[in-house]
Nucleic acid binder design. Structure first.
Lengths: 314, 314
DNA sequence: ACCAATTACTTGACTCAGTCCACTAAATGC
DNA sequence: GCATTTAGTGGACTGAGTCAAGTAATTGGT
């Protein structure tokens, strides 16, 4: 879904970036090398040893042009080409000692150039910049449509706040819920933390690439009843089976912790969540209309008996 | 403080980006224009009217080269140059109808190219990408060391969660406070939202570039006492006077709302905040040791009488 | 008011980065 | 074993970009 706003944001950035980095022009940072020369040198330096075809593919450079560049570098003693044992047509390229020196020189130059560009950045700013570039690169990369998956961990400082933030924002945007919902979230989270008992309670935070994308909580409801709460899967992580995974983890933990049953409260309009609970054996035990969060809806209590359910396949 | 890690992150990104965008090569996206041609056209399109020197500066292009490009475009009917009334040496350039058409054509091409690149991104991913590019651009920009400043607004859904998150994470990292602090934050936020009275209570959220960087809350403490709470300034926004501004806003609001005094609770180790309160006329009325959040510290209650303070310069 | 220095832009002349095409030689496929 | 593909090379060209030297208008100092 390529929306125009994003596209133009990228185009604006490109204009800025090309101008800023002096990509235009025929020589690389005022050295005796062209931009293509420099790219070849850097590439050879990064991967010790390559064949010309690989460079052609990765750098998108013309084969004949590359051939000439290589010949020139070989003549200058920057690289040497040895026959490829696996393919008689091609040769294996690697930088010589002098070539490595040149690579180092160019790198230093480029680093200096960039260093000058960012010297006034504070530590957290530099951090933010790195993070931003990493995100940009990942999203603009052709392969790796989406990095494999999520990881689960227990909560750390700030996680509970994130739970409140993300859910409040999401339900306000999607369903028009008001700030009483955020109040409820904060209350739930606050009292959970206040009485947190690691033996019988747990928070799972799902992360992808260092960003939080989902959560679930099991709280002790007393009387051997576990309360499943605050299930959330970010839009960016839909369709990965994260919701199922969170619910399963929660059930498994509740089972080993010795709870009799798990109960949860949700609302009828949250279809995906309801389906998920149903799939995992939960059944509705109570329904009642309310409009605590603005719009009228039907609140539902779901329960799962653990003793009978223990050996069902999930 | 240009650290090597950041520099190399940028270099890696540049390698990636130049390769990905086909910046190398002499023609722009296979059109009959060179990259420089295209940049000139886009620039002219963006700012309706310019002089050649401006282009030379902004695009970093050689004057003689630009002169020829302009002459060629003029001959092709893409742009027209009228004498500059303010400077007889220079002429004002603007695209003709045909030039605008060409600009549109090139833009469509470039958009298509980029659209193809990001078509598999989901909405939130696209959002994240835009945000990342904006951050990158801001940090890499030469001028505007730091964009003018922050903006203040009242709270929206998710903001209170963000307050909990950012403060919990910050105080855990910097002072080793435990999750009981996050619990307190959540409680404060939860009950504030539950009883929120817009007439006599307010939240200020500071944003910079669409990112939240600070907060403060004035809550009704009953008995005509306003409670100042949850003052926070993100590390990325230190030194902008944001803290002062938030406190001033808060005092001003409390004054017009008719509070008798403002009271707040903080801890002795938070030196910058204490200094800020002192500077605004607050005085300590109570101190007591506690270790609610792990480390032992001295909790302090500060108060500001409003009736006497009203006409002081801030 | 005037002259030197600067600025906006142009022109001539050149070079070499990058492209296109046709080719050889080895490898792969049926 | 023959057709096709792949790796790399060389010839020939073009035009993007550079450098130096100019002209005309403007600015600045005295």
């Amino acid at each position: 879904m390529p929306n125009l706003k994003t596209i133009d944001a990228i185009r604006a950035f490109s204009r800025f970036y090309t101008a800023r980095l002096g990509v235009v022009g025929q020589t690389y940072l005022g050295t005796e090398y062209s931009l293509s020369d420099a790219r070849v040198i850097f590439e050879l330096d990064a991967r010790q040893t390559t064949r010309a075809t690989d460079l052609v593919h990765d750098l998108g450079i013309d084969p004949s042009y590359l051939s000439r560049i290589i010949a020139r570098f070989a003549k200058q003693g920057l690289l040497k080409a040895t026959p490829d044992p696996e393919d008689g047509r091609s040769r294996v390229l690697s930088l010589t000692a002098r070539g490595l020196e040149e690579a180092a020189r160019l790198r230093a130059l480029s680093r200096g150039e960039i260093g000058a560009m960012i010297e006034r950045l504070s530590e957290p700013e530099a951090e933010a910049l790195e993070q931003a570039l990493k995100i940009a690169e990942r999203h603009l990369s052709p392969g790796s449509t989406t990095p494999p998956a999520f990881t689960l961990r227990q909560h750390r400082a700030g996680d509970m706040g994130w739970i409140v933030e993300s859910q409040a924002a999401f339900y306000a945007r999607e369903y028009g819920w008001n700030d009483k919902f955020e109040a409820l979230l904060a209350d739930v989270v606050g009292s959970f933390l206040k009485h947190f008992n690691p033996q019988r309670e747990r928070v799972w935070i799902a992360e992808r690439d260092g960003t939080r994308v989902g959560s679930i909580i099991l709280a002790d409801g007393g009387d051997d009843v576990g309360k499943l709460r605050l299930l959330y899967v970010d839009q960016a992580a839909r369709g990965l089976g994260l919701g199922s995974r969170l619910v399963e983890e929660c059930i498994a933990f509740a089972t080993t912790a010795g709870y009799r049953k798990i109960s949860l409260w949700t609302n009828d309009i949250l279809a995906t969540a309801r389906a998920l609970y149903a799939r995992n054996g939960f059944i509705v035990t109570n329904r009642e209309k309310h409009s605590m969060f603005g719009p009228a809806m039907m609140g539902e209590t779901w329960e799962l008996k653990l003793s009978e359910n223990k050996d069902l396949p999930s």
